[in-house]
Amino acid sequence: MNWESLEAFIAMGGYGLYVWGSYAVTFALVALEVVLLVLRGRGIVAQLARIGAPRRRS
C-alpha cells in the first residue's frame, strides 16, 4: 500500500493536477461515449417503432 493517507493519494506526490486531470478526462470521455451510444440505440429503436411497418417495396 503506497499511500499513508487519502490526502497523500489525492496529492499524488505533488502531481495530483496532472495525474487526476488525465484520469478524470479519460473516464469522463469514455462515460460520455457510453451514454451517447445508449441514447443512439434507444433513439433509433423508438424512431422505427414510431414509423411503424416498413414501406412495401415492389
Binding site: 503506497n2 499524488m12 506526490g13 502531481y15 496532472y18 495525474v19
Partner: peptide, 14 residues
C-alpha cells in the same frame, strides 16, 4: 513510486 518521475509516471496506465 518511480525514482525519477515520482508519482507523475502513473499516467502511463492510461
Amino acid at each position: 513510486t518511480d525514482q525519477q518521475q515520482g508519482e507523475a509516471y502513473r499516467i502511463i496506465f492510461i
